[in-house]
């Protein structure tokens, strides 16, 4: 379970997914936030009203996927790095994933990436589409990754394909 492994269970993940019908309409945020902690910046970050107001700061975020436009602003602001934007309509056979990324060096547009799952296992390859740096220092950079469509539910981390681990302190 999550509290023993740090990896959410398939049951937990099923709860945070948008419906298939919403997924077919393009980019949408997936909130992998399963533990009640005192935290609500995702609510403040969303200008679309897709994150419903918290009555208690410890509440789990409640997301109205129909209002979410997949902008990814919440991805930059979530201190838990727990939000990912998935677009299954990106290109034929390809999905786009917007991932929070706090290592240096940041990948560059066009750069080849290795993709990793929630346990850090390498599960495929992808390409950097762009990097949104956000507010200097404060926001978490967001990397847009193009990858195989059937991998978009599994991949949650990337690394530049050559060079391996990031070097130097990241913000």
């Amino acid at each position: 379970m999550l509290e023993r492994t740090g990896v959410p269970t398939p049951e937990q993940l099923a709860l945070c997914l948008p419906g298939p019908e919403r997924a077919r309409r393009g980019a949408v945020a997936v909130f992998e936030c399963f533990e009640k902690i005192p935290c609500d910046p995702c609510y403040e970050a969303c200008s679309q009203g897709a994150v419903l107001p918290f009555t208690d700061i410890n509440d789990l975020p409640q997301v109205d996927h129909d209002r979410c436009n997949g902008c990814g602003n919440c991805v930059q602001h979530c201190p838990g790095l727990a939000i990912f934007v998935v677009d299954c309509t990106w290109a034929p056979g390809k999905a786009l994933l917007k991932l929070p990324y706090e290592l240096l060096p940041l990948p560059e547009a066009g750069e080849a990436l290795s993709c990793y799952d929630r346990e850090g296992k390498r599960v495929g390859e992808g390409t950097t589409v762009r990097v949104v740096r956000g507010r200097p220092f404060l926001g978490t950079p967001v990397v847009w990754v193009e990858l195989e469509l059937d991998r978009c539910g599994q991949v949650r981390h990337v690394r530049p394909r050559e060079g391996g681990a990031g070097d130097g302190a990241a913000g």
Partner: peptide, 23 residues
């Protein structure tokens, strides 16, 4: 302890990077 004491989101972040957590 038999469970991770810190926030699950911090643990998940670390697991993704390939770091094992042994309770």
């Amino acid at each position: 302890a038999p469970r991770i004491g810190g926030y699950a989101v911090h643990a998940s972040k670390l697991r993704r990077l390939g770091v094992p957590i042994l309770v």
